[in-house]
């Protein structure tokens, strides 16, 4: 009987440790095992992505509708090209939707905000969002401000 209680407590310890690891993975680091592999790919080109990273959120009206899957330089246009995975159930984005890079709060992470358009044709797999607005980079704004001050 004594040895049984002992074994049960050891089992509980190991289970608790495993559960803690799982909780760390899912709750704390936001690891998504059931990566919504489904979903279609949409591209957007920006002059400056200013600190956007892979796995950043893509949201519309603040609701997440996808995530950034890859970022690279478009060699022909020499602009940043962002590849986004949009969830399958989001099948209402028209082709004149616009994308802009936003910041959550003053110091928060960067994400992409989609503003829907008015056309009847919908965005499909592999299409590119043409209407984009780059990230606001603080140095550029300050630079412009100073330049204007000087020219006055």
């Amino acid at each position: 009987m004594r040895i049984r209680a002992l074994e049960i407590s050891v089992g509980a310890l190991i289970l608790a440790g495993m559960l803690a690891l799982v909780a760390l993975a899912i709750n704390v680091s936001g690891l998504n095992l059931s990566q919504k592999g489904g979903g279609y790919t949409v591209y957007a080109r920006f002059d400056n992505i200013g600190g956007l990273t892979e796995r950043a959120k893509v949201s519309m009206s603040g609701v997440q509708i996808g995530q950034v899957s890859a970022i690279r330089i478009d060699r022909k246009r020499l602009m940043a090209e962002v590849e986004m995975q949009i969830f399958d159930d989001v099948d209402y984005l028209s082709i004149d939707s616009s994308a802009q890079i936003l910041t959550a709060g003053l110091l928060g992470e960067k994400y992409i905000g989609i503003t829907p358009g008015f056309e009847d044709d919908l965005l499909e797999n592999g299409m590119t969002i043409e209407d984009t607005q780059s990230a606001l980079v603080l140095e550029e704004i300050v630079g412009k401000f100073l330049f204007n001050k000087v020219s006055e």
């Binding site: 608790a16 440790g17 760390l24």
Partner: peptide, 10 residues
């Protein structure tokens, strides 16, 4: 030790 450390973190 790793089990305890995970529990500590959580």
């Amino acid at each position: 030790m790793p089990l305890l450390s995970m529990i500590f973190a959580i």
